[in-house]
């Protein structure tokens, strides 16, 4: 009983310790969305990730960087070497210095990372009315309930409720902490035409880009969950055996 009580107390402590952090960040409740990558057997969805990459490149990339992701990583999404090479070559990457001591631009190669949209933070703020568009490499891990938050944020633009005074150049978003966001609504119905012919509704784009960015933040998610299955299965059997051994050894004593 006491053992149980202590274990329960420890568990409750962990639970308690977490809960207020969630609340304290912002009072907005974020509904949870059904993601294929959640749960113990979760996996990504290659088609959605590929469409999400297209959304990132055609919409987000104008302002948001993805500096931790290299073109070679796109092999995870099911692209082959040639596709990655030609995709990388769409980008210009600064290299150098050459023999004259000058920096020069060249086509991207697989080992390059996504180039930043702005040369530095000040340039980014200058171009965005003083706001800094965050890098998206880790965005789903850097927010509470990251994927849900991102999805609902992208779809959460509304007219401000009566009595809310909007600051200059700000937009009302139901899910953004403080509700005033500098980012204009990024997704427009049919703004892009998907390579696979999927209709580009705003929901579809928001979901696809969340799939892509969740992968970008945690590329080893699938490997992690698959390894977890094996490790825990092994440990369950091993601990079962240890239990039998312990009973046998202690049988002498009782």
């Amino acid at each position: 009983m006491k053992k149980l009580a202590i274990i329960a107390a420890a568990a409750a402590f962990l639970g308690l310790a977490q809960a207020p952090v969630v609340q304290a960040a912002e009072e907005v409740e974020i509904p949870s969305h059904d993601w294929s990558f959640s749960g113990m057997f979760g996996t990504f969805d290659r088609a959605k990730q590929q469409r999400g990459l297209q959304v990132y490149r055609e919409v987000c990339a104008a302002c948001h960087g993805l500096r931790l992701v290299a073109f070679r990583n796109l092999a995870d999404l099911g692209y082959n070497e040639d596709e990655i090479r030609s995709l990388a070559a769409d980008y210009q990457v600064e290299d150098g210095p050459d023999e004259n001591g000058d920096m020069f631009m060249r086509d991207g190669v697989a080992s390059d990372r996504f180039p930043a949209p702005f040369p530095n933070e000040n340039a980014a703020r200058m171009a965005n009315n003083g706001a800094l568009p965050p890098d998206l490499s880790l965005i789903t891990k850097a927010r509470q309930q990251g994927p849900d938050y991102l999805y609902h944020l992208l779809l959460g633009y509304q007219d401000p409720p009566a009595g809310v005074e909007m600051m200059d150049g700000m937009y009302y978003n139901a899910y953004f902490p403080g509700h005033q966001i500098a980012m204009a609504p990024p997704l427009m119905e049919g703004a892009i035409s998907y390579a696979d012919g999927t209709p580009a509704t705003t929901q579809q784009m928001a979901e696809d880009v969340t799939y892509f960015l969740t992968w970008a933040a945690e590329p080893n998610l699938e490997a992690r969950k698959q390894m977890g299955m094996k490790v825990i299965l092994f440990l369950l059997i091993f601990t079962g055996l240890l239990y039998a051994v312990k009973r046998k050894v202690w049988a002498d004593l009782h």
Binding site: G228, I232, T239, V245, K246, W250
Partner: peptide
């Protein structure tokens, strides 16, 4: 052996957090 059994139980919980 008793410590090892406890370790086994601990590792299951630890692995649960690490992987999930």
């Amino acid at each position: 052996v008793k410590d090892l059994l406890g370790l086994g139980v601990f590792l299951i919980i630890f692995a649960g957090f690490i992987f999930y």
